[in-house]
Computed example of a mutant assay.
Amino acid sequence: MASRGKAVAGSGGRNKLGTNKETQKLADLARGQGWTVEVTGGNHLKWTPPPLDKPRKNWTEEDKVRQIPEISGLTPANVAFVKLKSRLAKKGLNTRP
């Protein structure tokens, strides 16, 4: 299990989050697409999308919203997990492996 407040998004090997299997699979999928997934000090997950290729001054309002990290529970319930996947998909994560 990851230490509190430690980033677990490194590229070397599989980093266990201390989550359920579905959340771990989603985190691995997100990391494969350039996302950063880390455990916060309050035992939540912070999902940060990869940076955009264009300069910040050219971002649209939609781009700005998509760059805001998502926070989720470490082990979300079924309904919360479905909503998390939906929110991440809206921010650009391809949730279909």
Rank of each mutant, 00 (worst) to 15 (best):
M1S: 09
M1C: 06
A2V: 13
A2H: 04
A2Y: 01
A2Q: 03
S3Y: 14
S3P: 03
R4I: 08
R4W: 05
R4G: 08
R4D: 13
G5S: 11
V8E: 00
V8F: 02
A9I: 02
A9S: 11
G10R: 12
G10K: 15
G10A: 11
S11M: 08
S11Q: 13
G12T: 09
R14A: 12
R14C: 03
R14P: 03
N15K: 08
N15W: 00
N15R: 05
N15C: 02
K16L: 13
K16I: 04
K21A: 12
E22Q: 15
E22M: 07
T23F: 00
T23E: 08
Q24L: 03
Q24R: 01
Q24E: 10
K25S: 14
A27F: 02
A27Q: 05
D28C: 03
D28L: 11
D28Y: 00
L29V: 00
L29A: 03
L29D: 01
A30H: 00
A30S: 00
R31C: 15
G32M: 02
Q33E: 11
Q33I: 13
W35G: 01
V37M: 04
E38M: 14
E38F: 02
E38N: 11
T40P: 01
G42W: 02
G42K: 06
G42D: 13
L45M: 11
K46M: 11
K46R: 14
W47I: 12
T48I: 15
T48Y: 07
P49S: 11
P49L: 09
P50D: 10
P51G: 01
P51T: 07
D53G: 12
D53C: 06
D53A: 15
K57W: 13
N58L: 08
W59L: 03
E61M: 11
E61P: 03
E62G: 08
E62Y: 06
D63L: 08
K64P: 01
K64T: 12
R66D: 09
Q67L: 04
P69I: 15
P69H: 06
P69W: 13
E70F: 07
E70Y: 03
E70M: 10
I71N: 07
I71V: 14
S72N: 08
S72Q: 09
S72H: 04
G73W: 10
L74D: 02
L74F: 05
L74K: 15
L74M: 14
P76N: 06
P76M: 10
A77F: 15
S86L: 10
R87D: 14
R87H: 12
L88F: 07
L88D: 04
L88V: 03
A89I: 01
K90D: 15
K90N: 13
K90A: 14
G92R: 04
L93A: 02
L93K: 02
N94H: 10
N94Y: 12
N94Q: 15
N94K: 13
N94I: 07
T95W: 00
R96G: 05
R96K: 08
R96C: 02
P97Y: 07
P97N: 09
